[in-house]
Simulated assay, not measured.
Amino acid sequence: MDEETLKRVQQTVNEILLVIDGFCRKYQVPYYLFYGSELGAVRHHGFIPWDNDADIVMFREDFERFRELWLQNPVEGYFFQDVETDKGYTVKFAKIRKNNTAFAEVENKDLEMHHGIFVDIFVLDDYVKNRFLRRVTELITMFDFNAKRQYVPSHSGRYLYKLTNRIFKSEKICKWWYRKVFPKLKKDDTMCSDIISYTFRHKYDFKREWLGTPQYVEYDGFELPVPENTHETLKVCYGDYMTPPPEDKRFSNHKPHYLSFDHEYHPNLKEGGHV
């Protein structure tokens, strides 16, 4: 992606961020720039120069209220995307996408879903005290996610993945666990976790006090919220977060198969143009 196109993508993503921010201010829903966007806010006072997406995070109770409010009062020109609002979507976290645009990623190019330019919304859940039950929660989340994508790796464990994909295909196990079991498990109310971004290393576990009251900071000429203690949250995610990676590592993980600022994408479109 050339520099001019990248800048235009970033500007469109910032437009979506401002829409989300205005909505959250109106309805008093707290949220934070997180992951790469929090890093960009702290290290670059805006977008990481080579990045092309944005991440925000909410606590579960705030996210559920945000979702309900958005579906009741949708912002014209923008779409709330999750597995319930878009049956073709196969990712467990939500997105806000801009209508009449396209950022169709290579791995999703054959899916019939909304492919608009987007902002990712991650959710921080309560932290299960019991280590075994926390691990069970992570496994159920991972297997359900893999089944939704029909993910099968190339290594020798692929037969286990095929089996769990079949078992979790209906999503009933995950829904039962999160609706009936998870709410009853004892929680550590000082901690929270991004369970969806599954990892056995618990890279995505955070102290609630680190997020605290959203702090508005400069972001590409605007003011957007970050956690109260950015040092601790960024240290968990990136370690030495103030040192940029080597130049050969400065690229985004999101690679568009098809990109447009004024047209939607569907799988029958040819790469680089419209049918």
Rank of each mutant, 00 (worst) to 15 (best):
A94L: 07
K172W: 15
F66E: 05
H45N: 15
F118W: 06
R208T: 08
Y161S: 06
H266A: 12
V91M: 08
V128W: 02
K148S: 10
R131D: 13
H274G: 07
Y161G: 01
Q11K: 15
P267D: 07
E223V: 07
P267S: 06
V128M: 00
P30D: 09
R135G: 11
L6Y: 10
F132C: 06
T141S: 14
M113N: 05
I167Y: 02
V13Q: 04
E264N: 12
E76P: 00
H274V: 15
G22V: 13
D205R: 07
L160S: 01
F251K: 13
Y151N: 03
Y27V: 05
W177K: 04
D62S: 14
N100D: 11
Q72K: 14
M58T: 03
V83S: 00
R250A: 06
E232K: 11
P245R: 05
N99R: 13
A147P: 00
R179D: 14
R43T: 05
E138H: 04
T199G: 14
H257W: 12
P246H: 09
F63D: 05
T243H: 05
T230L: 00
G40Q: 01
K186F: 10
M58L: 13
F206E: 01
F93D: 04
G46L: 09
G157N: 08
F103P: 00
F47M: 14
C192T: 08
N108F: 09
V136W: 02
Y238K: 07
A54I: 03
K235H: 12
K92F: 08
N268T: 13
L69G: 07
Y78K: 03
G46N: 05
Y219P: 08
M113I: 11
K203T: 11
E107R: 02
K172Q: 11
L39S: 08
A41P: 02
S252E: 05
Y258L: 05
E228T: 10
K129D: 14
H45C: 10
R208K: 15
T230P: 03
G221Q: 02
S37L: 04
T137N: 11
L139F: 09
L69M: 15
F93E: 00
R201L: 13
E68T: 12
V9E: 06
F145Y: 08
Y204C: 08
T164V: 15
D248E: 14
V106L: 07
P256Q: 00
D21Q: 10
L224F: 02
L185M: 11
H44N: 14
D262M: 07
R25H: 09
H254W: 03
F103K: 01
F66Y: 10
R250K: 14
L17K: 03
P246M: 10
T164C: 02
E68F: 05
K270G: 06
K129T: 14
V181T: 13
